[in-house]
């Protein structure tokens, strides 16, 4: 593992807002003076499929894709998708995961079951796991749509980026109308214990 680079993986379901969250992260790292690269897949995978976005920062980043087994932080928008990509992480990595389920087609059809106890199995594999009720925080902040920003707040505590820079990144990337609620949701996530 190249220790000078921090590798973040954002995983979830197409349509959950993963791309915007990874944009805000990248913007913050650039404002903090780091080299940043980011990669994800659009197109076919948007249609409710599984989505992974890679964000990497450090003094110099080559590959836009996180090498297998070298992820430092996983930012999970959904429990099943978080479980699916755990093998991309290094031992001892951090997981911040939304306590949220979106049922895949086979489960909707009653042909498969959504696995039980995913949060526990994630925590067993990666003790530094924070389970966040992003939806609840967002409703408290005033809008369910700010759930991702609340999660981002929880992730932000694991990163050496100042409050001021997070604020600048949010101001640049979030539409003006929704800014206040998003700043509040971000702070609520950032203030979570654990």
């Amino acid at each position: 593992m190249s220790s000078a680079i921090t590798n973040i993986l954002l995983v979830g379901v197409g349509g959950q807002g993963i791309l915007l969250a990874s944009e805000i992260l990248s913007e913050a790292f650039m404002l903090a003076g780091y080299d940043v690269k980011k990669s994800e897949i659009h197109g076919m995978s948007q249609r409710g499929g599984s989505v992974v976005s890679h964000v990497r920062f450090g003094t110099q980043v080559f590959s836009p894709v996180v090498p297998e087994g070298e992820g430092d932080i996983m930012f999970g928008f959904e429990l099943l998708e978080t479980s699916r990509y755990l093998s991309l992480l290094r031992p001892g990595a951090t997981v911040v995961v939304n306590d949220f389920k979106i049922l895949p087609p086979a489960v909707l059809l009653g042909q498969a079951v959504y696995p039980e106890g995913l949060a526990d199995s994630i925590r067993t594999a990666f003790p530094d796991t924070l389970l966040v009720d992003g939806q609840r925080l967002a409703i408290e902040a005033g809008d369910l749509r700010a759930a991702n920003t609340a999660l981002l707040g929880a992730v932000s505590k694991r990163l050496a980026i100042t409050d001021d820079i997070w604020r600048q990144a949010l101001e640049k990337m979030v539409p003006r109308k929704a800014l206040e609620i998003n700043l509040m949701a971000f702070q609520m996530g950032r203030d979570l214990k654990g």
């Binding site: 379901v13 076919m44 995978s45 599984s50 099943l80 992480l89 895949p104 087609p105 086979a106 594999a125």
Partner: peptide, 13 residues
Amino acid sequence: PLQQTMSLPPRPP
């Protein structure tokens, strides 16, 4: 670090 032991339902588009 973690070999996937559980089989997870796929999520195709």
